[in-house]
Amino acid sequence: MSAHVLDIVLSVNGDAVHERVDARKTLVDFLRDDLGLTGSHVGCEHGVCGACTVRVNGEIVRGCLMLAAQCDGAKIETIEGVSDSGAVADLQDAFEKRNALQCGFCTPGMILTAQELLTNGGATDRDTIREHISGNYCRCTGYHAIVDAIEAIAQTRGNK
């Protein structure tokens, strides 16, 4: 059946959520406007900047290029969830220590994108790190500090 308004049931940062959404509402707008999770940012709204990065069923996606309606039954994790769990605490510290953020607009997307690379063991060298974050724009830092922070965590986690 087709509908302009849909009821969805999903898990967001471990909590069960039941909501009614417009068919045209994107996932990132749903998280921000309906659930008040404003850590995921909205930049370009057409997939180019990566500010809206969130995890759906364990994989990072563009929150602006998925509909909330498509997330019925899905497991969503946002920067709020991964921050609270402590999973990215070391990465967040490294970003702070190395000035890998200035305004912070890109940072939630950067952290989630970097975390995926680190968890898959793929942060082997600076070129790979750069390639992996190529879809995330930062207007402030010039990227070097971000690559430094990710590289540092790849080393400390690798040595544990």
Binding site: S2, E45, H46, C64, L65, L67, Q70
Partner: peptide, 28 residues
């Protein structure tokens, strides 16, 4: 309908967000 198939959405939703296209129905 004036419908469009929705697969990954990585091109389609971008064009909808930019209002380059406005179908009546998305078929996921």
């Amino acid at each position: 309908n004036d419908a469009r198939l929705l697969a990954g959405g990585q091109s389609l939703i971008a064009t909808l967000n930019m209002r380059l296209s406005a179908p009546e129905l998305l078929i996921d």
